[in-house]
Structure formats: structure tokens, C-alpha cells
Design a protein around this nucleic acid. Structure first.
Ligand code: SF4
Ligand code: SF4
Lengths: 135, 135
DNA sequence: GTAATATGCTACCCCAATATAGTATATATT
DNA sequence: AATATATACTATATTGGGGTAGCATATTAC
């Protein structure tokens, strides 16, 4: 289970924004802080706005701000917002569907490892990574 | 931690070959069985041969055969043979390097999940997936 | 009203993974 | 020798993620 670079960008950006809850931050500020390619970040932020996670204000002194409280947004939600329909691998070998009576030697570790991360994503909120992650 | 499609192909192909240890199998047979794009599989098999995991025989009745015993080849070896230098993500957020005093909320789950799979790859051998996986 | 600073939008470019096509070469069968 | 069936090799398309460029639009400061 790996995430696209774009998803990482989103998590980083929102993670940082969480550490400055209530402040309006411009794409440029975030770019300077997080070293994410400016234009690409700009578009990503617009997307996150469109998906409802951010609110934006145009014009001078404008920028982006979280639309909900940091304790209210799970990482899973963010991943989903960014990756949309992107499918996660189910079978370790990439089989579309597996008709095995007995799971193969990799099945358990794989599934367990995946669901562990998945569960962490669902229980971890922006507030949880705001303080420790970015300064 | 996810693998490229090519890696999956390699694991499937070798996994199947393991279930027919000692038999010489052509790219065409493997293609028919595993539905991997013919020409792409062909090249992959040649690569696996070049990397030493397979031996090949040209001409009529030719094909590929594992160059070592199925109990002797770890999945980790295969992954490495195919992916070569490809880097695995270390930080969940994709930070090149993290200068945190205290690991963030995702760190542990992430690392643990990764190393679990990694360890399984190192301890699981072709023989272990030969019987159960493909029929 | 004009300049400065934002976001919003559209149209590209780049690259690596994936996939396909065609030809050359080797070998067993006949 | 001819044919069929393999691998080996090379060149080329396709695709999606990532990244860039430029202009349109909104808003504040002066
Ligand atoms: S049992 Fe093995 S082959 Fe079947 S879905 Fe699980 S990982 Fe894939
Ligand atoms: S502590 Fe968090 S930010 Fe730092 S390396 Fe680990 S996952 Fe990445």
C-alpha cells in the first residue's frame, strides 16, 4: 500500500495547516514552507477546496483555510478526497480475483499489513499530526 | 508498500512455474495461463533469465525453467531482481528526511506494516506459494 | 483607478511504467 | 532442406502521474 506523491503533498499541506489552525495561508506560503512545486500545489489546493476540505478566499490577503476543525478530519478522508476512485491492491500478487480454497502464504501478512494502515488512517485525525509533524 | 505491476507479473509467473518445478514452460504457455500480455511477459522472462533466476532454451520445445530449487528462492530475491534500485518509501508523508524529536502519529504503524511485509518476503520462498496459489 | 497579490482555469510538457510490433536467431521435427 | 516453434533483440506506441506556463478573475491597498 503506497500513496501517490500527490496524496503525500495533500497530507503534508493539510498537516501543516492543521498546526496553524484558524490562519489563512496562501499557496505561496505553503510552497515556501513545504517545498511542494508551486503551481502543482496551487492546483491541488483548489482541488481540496472543491472537495470541501478547504475554503478559499481570492484576491489580496486571500488563501486557504481548513473548512472543519482539525480534530474532525481523518487522514482517510483526505486520502480518499485526493485519490478518488484509485483502487487499492487486494491480492498481493495482483490477481483480480482469487479463487483459492486456502489462502496462499502471503495473504495474511498482506491483508493484515494493509488493514493496519487503513485503520490508522481512519482513526488518525489532522489534529493528531498537527503538533508533531511540521514546525 | 506496493509493487509495480511488473513485479506482480514476475511473482505470478515464477509462482506458477514453481508449481510445475522441473518442467520447461514457454512464454506462450505462461501467457495463456496467467493472462499476462504476451510480449511484455516474454521480455520479463528474458530479464529474469539474465538476472539468473531462470534458464532458457531457444528453439522448438524451448522455454524457461527455474535455475534453482523452489525452496531456495525467496520472494524478496525476486522483487529485488525485478525492481532493482527502486526505492521504498520511508516516511509516510514522503518527507525526504524527517527531523522530528518525537515520531508523528503515523510513523509506527507505517514502519511496522512495511517491515512486516518485508520480513515475509524474506522468509517466504517460491515453494511456499507454489502449491496453494495457482492451479 | 491602478497596482499588487491572491485564486481559478486551461493547455500544455515530461517521464517512467506498461504494452505492442517486427525482425533476427536458434533448434526440433519432418 | 524446409517448416514450425521457440527465445532474443530493438524500436515504437500508450498511458497516467507529475510538473510548468500563461492568462483570467477577484480583492485589497494605495
Ligand atoms: S490468497 Fe494469495 S493469491 Fe489469493 S488473493 Fe490472497 S494473496 Fe492473492
Ligand atoms: S515521524 Fe512522521 S514525518 Fe517523520 S519520518 Fe516518521 S512518518 Fe515521516
Amino acid at each position: 500500500m503506497t500513496f501517490t506523491r500527490t496524496t503525500e503533498y495533500a497530507l503534508r499541506a493539510l498537516g501543516y495547516m492543521a498546526s496553524r489552525e484558524g490562519e489563512m495561508l496562501s499557496a505561496d506560503q505553503l510552497h515556501a514552507k513545504l517545498k511542494i512545486p508551486k503551481k502543482y500545489l496551487q492546483r491541488l489546493l483548489t482541488d481540496l477546496k472543491r472537495s470541501g476540505l478547504l475554503k478559499s478566499v481570492r484576491g489580496r490577503n486571500g488563501g486557504f483555510i481548513l473548512s472543519r476543525r482539525t480534530g474532525d478530519i481523518t487522514l482517510a478522508e483526505i486520502v480518499h478526497a485526493v485519490e478518488g476512485t484509485r483502487t487499492r491492491p487486494e491480492c498481493f500478487f495482483g490477481f483480480a480475483k482469487c479463487a483459492l480454497d486456502v489462502p496462499c502464504a502471503m495473504h495474511d501478512v498482506w491483508i493484515r499489513s494493509q488493514s493496519t494502515v487503513q485503520e490508522a488512517l481512519q482513526t488518525t485525525r489532522l489534529a493528531d499530526i498537527a503538533g508533531t509533524t511540521f514546525r
